[in-house]
Computed example of a mutant assay.
Amino acid sequence: MSVTVLVLVEAVNDYLPILEQQGYTLILAPTPAARAAAIAEHAERIDAVLTRGPLGFRGDEMAALPHLKIICVIGAGYEHVDLAAARAHGLVVSNGAGVNAPSVADHAMALLLALVRDIPRADASVRRGEWAKITRPSLQGKRLGILGLGAVGMAIARRAGGFDMAVSYHNRRPRQDVSYEYRESPLALAAGCDFLIVATPGGAQTRSMIDAAALQALGPQGFVVNIARASVTDSAALLQALEQGLIAGAALDVFDDEPQVPDAFKALTNVVLTPHVAGLSPQASEDTVRMVGRNLEAFFNGQPLLTPVALD
């Protein structure tokens, strides 16, 4: 069976030959203009769509593709895929849950270390010949709160053990397979930790979980790291907390309107910023594409998806 995949993502191009070697025909459309043109020109050919959470896939686009059967999402998040429309059109959706967790967890810890130890300003000091000595906190003995103890959150928690940090977490429900302390709400999590890492999926259910009250509870010695989705934090409240010293600092890999980053965040010295690269590594990109291939193979052979997304 010949299967044509509309590819909307741009970060895994080096590994797309994996799908071509499996026999899939790819139509690359990494920009909004190319996306619209590809849907208009190749509507009768497209059987599958490959996207990622921030890019999503809309209901009107699904309606324009009469032979579309499956939407594959790279990464765990699928917040801008219209799941109700997918269900209405009889489609199935898969994601890459857990595939890039090691890379994301590594980046989360790198951001935490850079933020708490103030590595960017120390580096800049040396380059300017100033040799500024700044006393900064260590991670040992600190309390780490993780919002979302899925594959990424678990990988972060394991790494935190190497720094002798006490880990607590908040999830939709407590996990029975871990010994970490469960907190009943994001507010309680923030109140009981020194460092807060946001690792929960985006979407309506998690929007602004970290709000002004949670940031106030984290306190003036607290740091927050977000490697999940910007929507999980109230960006206006976060900016105000940083400007007013209500928290000590923040490290952000995700933003509300990527790739646009508010100048107000760039102007702050207590912020570390990276361009949504936490999930990117050669191994993660290859594994992600291989997972897409396995889901496509399973679906078109009448077998269950490896990583299905519930549409109800």
Results as ranks from 00 to 15, higher is better:
15 Y>I: 00
16 L>H: 10
18 I>K: 04
20 E>D: 01
20 E>W: 00
21 Q>F: 02
21 Q>H: 13
21 Q>A: 12
22 Q>T: 13
23 G>M: 06
25 T>C: 08
27 I>H: 03
27 I>K: 10
27 I>Q: 03
28 L>N: 12
29 A>M: 08
32 P>Q: 00
33 A>T: 11
33 A>M: 05
33 A>N: 03
34 A>M: 06
34 A>Q: 11
35 R>M: 13
35 R>N: 12
35 R>S: 11
36 A>I: 14
36 A>E: 11
38 A>V: 13
39 I>P: 03
39 I>K: 06
39 I>R: 08
40 A>S: 02
42 H>P: 02
42 H>S: 07
42 H>R: 14
43 A>Q: 02
43 A>G: 00
44 E>V: 12
44 E>S: 15
45 R>K: 15
47 D>Q: 05
49 V>L: 06
50 L>T: 10
51 T>Q: 07
53 G>S: 02
53 G>Q: 00
55 L>F: 05
55 L>Q: 06
56 G>A: 04
58 R>W: 12
58 R>D: 11
58 R>M: 12
59 G>F: 14
59 G>T: 12
60 D>M: 12
62 M>R: 13
64 A>E: 03
65 L>F: 04
67 H>L: 02
67 H>W: 01
68 L>G: 05
68 L>M: 12
69 K>A: 05
70 I>F: 10
70 I>A: 07
70 I>M: 10
71 I>S: 00
72 C>K: 07
73 V>N: 15
74 I>M: 13
75 G>M: 03
75 G>R: 05
77 G>N: 15
78 Y>K: 02
80 H>V: 01
81 V>G: 03
82 D>W: 08
82 D>K: 05
82 D>G: 03
83 L>A: 15
88 A>Y: 14
88 A>W: 14
88 A>I: 13
88 A>P: 07
89 H>T: 10
89 H>M: 10
89 H>Y: 14
91 L>P: 00
91 L>N: 04
94 S>M: 12
96 G>L: 09
97 A>N: 13
98 G>A: 11
99 V>E: 07
99 V>I: 12
99 V>W: 07
99 V>A: 08
99 V>L: 04
100 N>P: 05
100 N>Y: 10
100 N>G: 06
100 N>C: 09
102 P>K: 11
103 S>T: 08
103 S>D: 09
103 S>M: 06
